[in-house]
């Protein structure tokens, strides 16, 4: 059981129906993006999939720990970067020494070498998100749930981070469900785009993206990419006008 099935899921947020009977399925090793306007229940739905919120309906996902990366990453500011990275391992019973042994070789790949013994406060925006991503990856979950992972990063660094995530997927082989409100980001980083509309959050359309991985900077000029992105955008605009 390593794919994700969401069947007729409804979630109430503070008494309001935030997500209304949403269904989608994500095959093993594929990537899914949930896109829609603010307040359409994207984050709420992601939290339900992570098992952090009570819901009605059925969610099937891999057993065990889930890598959940909330908006803005939220590293723990009172611990050094290294300690932050250790935490998902410590929680699962690693000793601090074993945890460090696993983390050290990864620091370079994630561009964090030399910064491990600093507080997260000193990291740049891109580094901060990479550190958050590495922490999420160290949960050893094959399913990463990312809530606007690059929302706080400027437009230039954001594209670098897309390519970066794509590269990491090849190396570590995990699936992602990500929430975003950037159409290009959604199409570039996923195989399935779930378009939601608001009040209450419902699935409006599910779009498949037929572009092979690994995607590169040239993918942005790819005709399929452009037409899919245009289609997704038109769907969102039609619904909201």
């Amino acid at each position: 059981m390593s794919k994700v099935e969401v069947r007729e899921v409804s979630v109430y947020y503070e008494g309001f129906l935030a997500v209304d009977r949403v269904s989608f399925s994500l095959p093993q090793g594929k990537h899914l993006a949930i896109i829609g306007p603010s307040g359409c229940g994207k984050t709420t739905l992601l939290k339900a999939v992570a098992g952090l919120m009570p819901y009605e309906g059925e969610i099937l996902r891999p057993e065990g720990p889930v890598g959940y990366m909330p908006q803005k990453g939220v590293l723990l500011p009172w611990f050094f970067v290294l300690k932050n990275l250790e935490i998902p391992l410590l929680i699962r019973g690693y000793s601090s020494k074993k945890a460090k042994e696993r983390i050290y070789p990864l620091l370079e790949q994630f561009g964090l070498k030399g910064f491990e013994n600093n507080y997260p406060k000193v990291l740049s925006g891109g580094m901060y998100q990479r550190a958050s991503l590495l922490r999420t990856l160290l949960t050893d979950s094959k399913l990463l749930l990312l809530d606007e992972p690059f929302g706080a990063v400027d437009a230039l660094n954001r594209r670098k981070l897309w390519l970066y995530l794509e590269e990491m997927r090849l190396k570590f082989y995990f699936s992602t469900i990500m929430v975003t409100h950037d159409v290009e980001e959604a199409v570039f980083l996923s195989d399935i785009v779930v378009i939601m509309h608001d009040y209450p959050g419902k699935v409006q359309e599910i779009v498949n993206v037929d572009i092979p991985h690994p995607r590169t900077i040239d993918t942005l000029k790819d005709q399929t990419f452009i037409s899919t992105a245009e289609f997704v955008l038109s769907q969102i605009i039609n619904e909201n006008s």
Binding site: K47, L52, P65, L90, T139
Partner: peptide, 16 residues
């Protein structure tokens, strides 16, 4: 609450 959620998703105990 996001900080708590990250740990909960991993399966952290209350003491963690």
């Amino acid at each position: 609450p996001d900080m708590v959620d990250v740990l909960k998703a991993i399966g952290a105990k209350t003491s963690d």
